[in-house]
Design a protein around this nucleic acid. Sequence first.
DNA 1: ATTACTAGCGTACGAGTAA
DNA 2: TTTACTCGTACGCTAGTAA
Lengths: 220, 220
Amino acid sequence: MVDPEDKEILRQLAKLGALSDYIYTSSGEIGRRIGVSQQTASRRILDLVDRGFLTRRMTPRKQFIRLAAPGVEVLRKDLVELKALFATAEHMTIRGRVVAGLGEGQYYISRPGYMKAFNEILGFEPFPGTLNVEVEPLDREKVAELKEREGRLIKEFVSEGRTFGAVKCFRADLGGVECAAIFPLRSHHTNVLEMISPVQLRKKLDLADGADVSVRILLD
Amino acid sequence: MVDPEDKEILRQLAKLGALSDYIYTSSGEIGRRIGVSQQTASRRILDLVDRGFLTRRMTPRKQFIRLAAPGVEVLRKDLVELKALFATAEHMTIRGRVVAGLGEGQYYISRPGYMKAFNEILGFEPFPGTLNVEVEPLDREKVAELKEREGRLIKEFVSEGRTFGAVKCFRADLGGVECAAIFPLRSHHTNVLEMISPVQLRKKLDLADGADVSVRILLD
DNA sequence: ATTACTAGCGTACGAGTAA
DNA sequence: TTTACTCGTACGCTAGTAA
């Protein structure tokens, strides 16, 4: 097993160039970089050499040291894992219950300007109506956080002689149905999610007012 | 300071999904994942919460836990650092001394087939002659390693009624002059580097036989 | 200068357990 | 079930030092 302290040494050596060639350094230097004594650094290096993660050549002063193939692999594995983590750090679950909307949503989203934008940005033409989900109090901070994120933006536009405000969208999944949460930039609500979908969510999922739902938001 | 053990906890939590949302887990579970006891995991989590790297909500059983912004930054910094390491893990220095060649190189590299290939692969038309560098014994294993690497390949081709063998090239830098090391795939020498360059290296750098040189090979 | 051994100490671990 | 406290122990640290 490679413990985190071992990885730290491998990383510091890699930063000095020991990934692809021998570097000329000393146990004291390495100790300083990782915040331990010369003695501890020496012991740990020795251990890594014994286990095949480092190769080195000694000289009367200092030493030539580089990562052996298994040492490089340790770091590469970390890189791959972190890449994957950030690549798939993509969803957030928000719970709430279905509530009756004001009927406003229907008017707005069916404006041709929005319809066209939804199609471009989300890849579907929404059913003309929103499903409103009252967010469970504990999850409201998540909604606030969502609003801080990029999301997919529909810019404000002018049509029919008036201005339609910018809207931020997040793709989502509700009970296995493709949908999206939409946030008019002007609003500051954090207790209601407005969901749109190519189908009528309420009917498709047979949702009555008060039904508990769990929305999986994709962060992209 | 975030020590490597702290990072390990953040990573394990991130793998469970705590990068972008709360996860429902227990100190025992986390302890198991990082190979420490429930007590130690509990103490370390508490410490990370105190220092602002984690946020959590307790329940009578288990807890909801996620990385706070500073915790995410710790991992992101690691990712960026590792990416940079592997992106620039690109050179290897090989030392040796100039030796007289057999004059063979000149014949081969000036064949039109090779000339054209060098131009495509290295971006320059080489001076018709090679500079031979006898590799210092300690660096010979590096040469062997180079031959294991991809490099830039010139495939074998037929011309003038005979076959010209495949050659592997590595871009290099010798005394600030752009050049390349070439390895006929058939040869198994590891004690001599054959260098080519758009200019006559020997003349440009005023190198007599026996001159000590240091070749910086780019690994790409 | 270095590396790396030995000794002694301090810290962080896990067992036991309360809430 | 959990979390997280106290406490005794042991592991890994640093200091001192030889080569």
